[in-house]
Amino acid sequence: MKYSIRAPLTKEITCNLKAGDTISINGYIYAARDAAHKKMIELLDEGKELPFDIMDQIIYYVGPCPAKPGAIIGSAGPTTSSRMDAYTPKLIQHGLKGMIGKGLRSKEVIDAMKAYSAVYFGAIGGAGALIAQKIVSEEIIAFPELGAEAIRKLTVEDFPVTVIIDCHGNNLYDIGKNKFRKIN
């Protein structure tokens, strides 16, 4: 199915999405990757607040290029999600509802997604120039010292993703591969 959804999400939205659905996201999402995840988990471990309210939010795993003069943001495609696996279950427990990235997730992440009705979206790896055109505003909200890895609030319009793993644990990577596999 094709849907247009608004971010932040609600449990009602995430529970309706199925692996393989193509989605346009409108609204705002947060950009965070390796170093920012490490820092967020350190804050939670110290009993401190996260730099933004994570309840019902989507995190996009991205470290964009610098914007050229006149542009909003540089190329901004997804990075490999599995490097965030160690930190993700805890963020899901704190309310994170959606993740945008590329590549495989761990069993622990998928279990947490099922328990808390979160969803994993895939964006096209390697299409960062194209994807950047769907980002209409960018604001660094935390850890500016991390440069490309700082946490950013991004406003997106018709941001194209595919549901890879839904909140029931159905996984498009397995479904798609099995359909076309001709070798063992």
Binding site: P64, I124, G126, L130
Partner: peptide, 22 residues
């Protein structure tokens, strides 16, 4: 997806921006 990768390459060339953020 392949069509999008081709579009992406053409856009990067035209606007003189990086093909990929990495």
């Amino acid at each position: 997806i392949i069509q999008n990768l081709i579009k992406n390459a053409l856009m990067a060339k035209e606007r003189k921006i990086a093909i990929c953020q990495d």
